[in-house]
Design a protein around this nucleic acid. Structure first.
Lengths: 230, 230
DNA sequence: TTTTTATAATAGTAATACTATTATTTTAAA
DNA sequence: TTTAAAATAATAGTATTACTATTATAAAAA
């Protein structure tokens, strides 16, 4: 039974061609590159992660990894893009049955603040680790001098799509609110940053002592709905 | 006259000893390291910035720069810490004469959203450039595997101090609001991120087309005061 | 079966991030 | 004023990183 359900819910994220040189999904080596890069970036941090170390870990060579990704920054963008696509998939899945925008928004905030309940099988990718990589390293994907060039290549499309989708729900909930997109990106960023602060720089938050996911949720909930109260 | 006023308002930021190996303020070479690292990080982005290139630019050697800073990441932390200290100084200066917390908060949001009016002389540091470095590279100061170790060395104290100061004003304005510190860090982060988005990933904001600083200000103002309405 | 094509490994290079040692300048003591 | 000590900076390295050109091997097609 669980086999069948797993197959029904199996997620296949369609990735933009510009994100890679060769599609890593289509070979054992490629899938290993994704899987273990996520593991190692989490372990070492992005700065200490190198293609050489990854190659050693998965029993291949640096040059072979370079045939899949131009460089390690592109690989990071790939992972982060996968994460946002995956999250959008979840958002769509869990909100499609909800009638009014208020409930949809509430559900989204819940997904953001209380993430990663291993609900979809994504074969070779560990979604919990990808989430952590997104929190710790996600901003580095776009905080570069070549952000505009990368943006033209649509590398950030998954993030912008999700942001736009949430902004639409915000606008539906309160059409008179002036900043739906900024509120949406604030929600997305703060879901990550407040969690990072809670765990690592707790005095920047009000839920550092008990590291309470519930209070993080409440903060985001209030932030959004106080802004949208009519 | 302007000479005298300049002297009166000249800012001397006291920096934590752990931020450097040798105090760069105390030598011509040290001051050049700070001044031109800010220039070059802005020009090239932090990833492409190296001590070697900096050494060439200011006519010294790599090894000499290493006598001041352990590595380029520590130099970034120094610059960002200087920025937050400078901003806190400004906050104190511009709010000391304001009686009620509402006006103080309003002033702070103004300072954050409409920054860098060359009001204080800071001799060798270009505050406009430092602000831009803080926006583009600031998060990289703490988004590392050694954030906790760095935090124990109090490297992020200036950021946490400013965050705490604003949180206190928030709590004074509305003592029943539950998340003053998280709202404060959200305000600080979003002042940077929404500006970065506005200029580089405009569809994540609602002020991308006209790049309107005024609307960015309004967004932050509403975000804070809608949360604090009693 | 042979040829083509796809894929991966070998063997490099230039640049980066440092460090140990030596040289020079400044300061202080004799 | 001279000499010794201390502070400061430069030289000359090394190991690692980020990448590339070329060669080898395996798979698919003719």
């Amino acid at each position: 039974m669980s086999e069948i359900r797993k197959m029904e819910l199996a997620v296949q994220i369609k990735m933009n061609e510009k994100l890679f040189l060769r599609n890593p999904e289509l070979s054992e080596l490629g899938r290993n590159i994704i899987k273990y890069s996520v593991v190692m970036i989490r372990e070492k941090g992005f700065e200490d992660f190198t293609f050489k170390k990854l190659a050693q870990r998965i029993g291949t060579t640096e040059a072979s990894i370079y045939r899949y990704f131009e460089n390690k920054h592109r690989l990071l963008i790939y992972i982060v893009a996968w994460y946002w696509s995956y999250l959008e998939y979840k958002v769509v899945f869990y909100t499609q049955n909800l009638a009014n925008p208020e409930n949809r928004l509430k559900k989204i905030i819940e997904l953001l603040a209380k993430p990663v309940t291993d609900d979809f099988s994504t074969d070779y990718i560990d979604e919990k680790l990808v989430y952590e990589v997104a929190v710790w390293e996600g901003s580095k994907a776009y905080l570069t001098k070549h952000v505009s060039k990368d943006n033209k290549d649509r590398l950030f499309k998954p993030y912008k799509d999700l942001c736009g989708r949430i902004a639409n729900i915000i606008a539906e909930f309160n059409p008179r609110y002036k900043f739906p997109r900024s509120l949406s990106s604030t929600l997305l960023e703060m879901a990550h940053y407040q969690r990072f602060f809670m765990n690592n720089l707790p005095s920047l938050t009000d839920f550092g002592e008990d590291k309470s996911e519930e209070r993080l949720y409440q903060f985001l909930y209030q932030l959004v709905f106080d802004s949208l109260k009519k």
